[in-house]
């Protein structure tokens, strides 16, 4: 693997391994993502994609190996500290605050990296500057018209959009999107992939996606994971012709 020179990589994984008891879910993964890159992670079910994501975002720590985020070693940082460094994520099954309203969700996302989350003497509704960030994030995912609605009234597709808006509202340096189109109707897939395509260039995007059309259209680099290991890394054009990838992923020889 090419050793990343200082401040060249947004994300740099070195020999990341995650074991659950006897099971090796992620096996010695090394990977580099440039700032601003659109990087897609593909692989069959059970390849360890989500586990790798969880290692990167800090849901749990890798069993061994190192994770550097903009030249900071985050391998042993708590999830909240990684979030504060600018790691934003979405979830495969939408994970939003269902008992709250859309705007309350987003206010919390904005406050996540802000000391005012400890404020006790002023209504959260009166935080002026926060409202602007909320509006921007909501406009990006095209949910403006739902600002004051309870999340419980949102469709599943809208919840996935809100999930993305939450990650955006915390103004991340990198976004980790876990199958943003999973479980959506074709028209909703279209909308979400458009939203992702229009994300600001300075945000690095790493995304797990099963839909190859969407994946290859958005990707600049593709990594293929199989049984916890990286079996391919290259451009979208190369991945379609790589025989090993075709074999494990497309199931044809």
């Amino acid at each position: 693997m090419r050793a990343g020179t200082a401040n060249s990589a947004a994300l740099e994984l070195t020999g990341v391994t995650k074991r659950f008891g006897g099971l090796v879910a992620v096996d010695d993964v090394s990977l580099t993502v440039r700032p601003g890159e659109r990087h897609i992670l593909i692989g069959p079910n059970g390849a360890g994609k989500t586990t790798l994501f969880n290692c990167i975002t800090g849901t749990f720590w890798p069993s061994s190996g190192q994770i550097r985020f903009f030249d900071v070693d985050v391998s042993r940082l708590a999830e909240r500290d990684r979030a504060r460094l600018g790691i934003g994520r979405t979830f495969q099954i939408s994970n939003v605050l269902v008992e709250l309203t859309v705007s309350e969700n987003l206010i919390l996302a904005v406050l996540g990296r802000d000391r005012r989350k400890w404020m006790m003497h002023k209504p959260f509704a009166d935080l002026g500057a926060v409202a602007d960030s909320v509006g921007t994030a909501l406009a990006t995912v095209r949910l403006d018209h739902r600002l004051n609605d309870p999340v419980a009234s949102l469709s599943y597709g809208e919840r996935k959009q809100l999930d993305l808006a939450l990650a955006l509202a915390m103004e991340p340096r990198a976004l980790f999107l876990d199958e943003p189109c999973a479980g959506l109707a074709p028209s909703e897939r279209q909308r979400v992939s458009q939203i992702i395509g229009e994300l600001p260039d300075d945000i690095t995007v790493v995304m797990i996606e099963h839909d190859m059309d969407i994946a290859l259209r958005l990707a600049e680099r593709v990594t293929v994971l199989h049984q916890g290991q990286v079996i391919f890394e290259g451009s979208p054009d190369e991945v379609e012709t790589d025989t090993q990838v075709r074999e494990v992923y497309f199931g044809s020889g």
Partner: peptide
């Protein structure tokens, strides 16, 4: 009604989401 109170309600709804937002 403060941000603090909102954070509590957020935690009640989904702790994993709140953690990934920096809480």
């Amino acid at each position: 009604r403060s941000p603090f109170g909102l954070v509590l309600r957020g935690l009640k709804s989904s702790e994993s989401r709140m953690r990934s937002l920096g809480y």
